[in-house]
Design a protein around this nucleic acid. Structure first.
Lengths: 230, 230
DNA sequence: TGCGCAGAGTGCAAAAATGCACATAGTGTA
DNA sequence: TACACTATGTGCATTTTTGCACTCTGCGCA
């Protein structure tokens, strides 16, 4: 293996109290919304309920999110941001596909996927919620494009091919989403090591297909050994 | 027994979000201070530590309390406020001494005395902290005087005798404090039912002495049966 | 003695949270 | 249809929290 999936963290300079509070509030709202979704089902609770459960006023809720759906989408956003952060941490000289693979691999972690898995099972039936989930994936695509551009800009003499980048980013996200979809369908919200290993393999396979130009659409499945990829 | 120790609560009209937040912050500060006192001992932590543990800024701490000691004293204040609230709930026509007895009796409750008991054991050695505790008791005395005046004002034709009220309030508080002191000395921070029953009896006895004009300073102790009092 | 420093406490302006009023939209109902 | 009612979303004034820059005091140390 050329590079590890782990990259040394550049140390976080303890955000200001303001930043911490905002992050905590944001998180409290997302948690409250997810709890209510779990307890009452989609459409059976109001913004006021969320605010109350989060310990803030209704007005403050709207200072953070434009709607209930936006609040729930923040769970997905948080999930995807995690991957994005990992992507940014990869060395600039690494092939982008390999960086993407490593970043996506970080998602197969219990703490990370848990809220996402639950949200997925709870929103699958509700078209409105599913739509806002898609928006989150799309937003992440845009972020990846930006991150990729930054990386290319670091490499002297390399020109930015807009189409190439956008197609690549979109494809990578699609592969990630496809892996998640298949995983949910196969394993549900199961977070056992075995299930997570399946997710990992799905992610690897999906990126593998992408890297191979989708050469052999035949079997693939989760049996493909890791060493055969990139 | 003429009247019960329990009085129907007039129902709390859910305070505003602002009120709730302020109360929560106040409580968080007091808890953080008590935790640090427990963990590091008096004098071994700063206002900044408290603020950090409470999840607020140092400046905000000073918006609530003027010093570390004031924050710790709020534990005592909360304890005494509880008794004061009970006092205010008693019917106006009840003899004041009986109201006081009933109010003090409410203090012999595990949830109520727990923080107080711990604070007591932790501050006993520190003169500065003990002083601010005394201030809290004194503050409570003033509050009782106010509450008693309000009660007298409710009774038509009754004149307010300043000296009588002040002497009475001070004496009642002294009796309460004496009972607590003896209890701590006897039982430490023990919160078992047996220990709380001792506290109850001490409170009853102390008020009993007061009601009897301190007639017989002889034995008393915790053996005195309840029915012999008031 | 003088100096550096950590911590207490305060004034002030910027930022965040809140209450409140209002416009709007959907829903059940007489 | 008209009306009451509930919930969303927003504008604005007020209150609270925060960051920052002080001042002041006590303490260790050269």
């Amino acid at each position: 293996m050329i590079s590890s999936d782990e990259v040394p963290q550049p140390a976080a300079p303890t955000p200001s109290r303001r930043e911490q509070n905002k992050a905590a509030t944001r998180q409290a709202i997302a948690d409250a919304a997810l709890n209510l979704l779990r307890g009452k089902g989609p459409g059976n609770f109001t913004v006021e309920d969320i605010a109350e459960a989060a310990g803030i006023s209704r007005r403050t809720f709207f200072n953070y999110f434009s709607s209930t759906e936006a609040a729930l989408a923040s769970v997905t956003n948080g999930f995807l941001d995690h991957a994005l952060r990992q992507f940014r941490l990869r060395p600039a000289e690494e092939p982008i596909l390999e960086s993407a693979r490593a970043a996506l691999m970080q998602l197969a972690d219990p703490m990370t996927v848990a809220p996402m898995a639950e949200l997925f099972t709870l929103t699958q039936q509700n078209s409105s919620l599913v739509r806002s989930e898609l928006e989150a994936w799309d937003h992440c695509t845009e972020q990846i494009i930006i991150a990729a551009k930054e990386r290319v800009a670091k490499t002297p003499g390399a020109a930015i091919d807009e189409l190439y980048l956008r197609a690549l980013a979109g494809s990578v996200i699609s592969c990630g989403k496809a892996a998640m979809d298949v995983w949910f369908a196969q394993c549900g919200a199961d977070l056992s090591p075995a299930s997570l290993s399946v997710l990992r393999q799905l992610l690897i396979d999906a990126i593998g297909h992408l890297g191979a130009g989708f050469a052999s659409p035949a079997h693939s499945s989760t049996a493909t050994p890791f060493k055969d990829r990139l």
